[in-house]
Amino acid sequence: MGRETRYYGHLIRVAVVFGLGFLAFVIIRHSLVPTDFGVYGFYRAGALDDARALPISFAGRDVCEVCHVAVVESQKESRHTRVSCESCHGPLAKHASGEFNPKPKTLHPRELCLSCHVKMAGKYDGFPQVDPADHGGDFACTACHQPHQPKIAMETGKKK
């Protein structure tokens, strides 16, 4: 009897230590792993909402069109039809949501136009490019070209 108790007691001590260790593991793991971890996969489901929480800076042309109907309509029919408003005017979601009222910042007409239209190898055929050294002199591009309808109506008499 005595001999056997000593033997079992040894096993019980091992089992208790193992059990406590396992319990500690479960408790620590429970406190460290977020509750929504693993809903979709090996990541925190709330991270999807975190990624969506960022504020928007660029409103998009559809939002601009709500107020600035005429200018967006005319621009849509021009050669600049693919260029969205905020490509040139900068991010204006705050302006669209009414958070700030002042007008969008004035643009530097020469630098801005040349950021796309400077003559450079690598642009596709038919893309209008100018060498600033021999086109326009010191005039601002907007002295001749209207950015929302950039093609100067000379031949057709119709702006396009």
Binding site: L48, A51, R52, A53, L54, P55, I56, S57, F58, G60, H80, R82, V83, S84, E86, S87, P91, C116, F127
Partner: peptide, 23 residues
């Protein structure tokens, strides 16, 4: 890049695609 996850889940396009002048 998050593919502008905050924009595309609200029906907008990405900022880069919005700003691209040639599409």
């Amino acid at each position: 890049c998050t593919l502008c996850y905050h924009r595309i889940t609200q029906g907008l396009t990405t900022a880069c695609a919005e700003a691209c002048p040639t599409g």
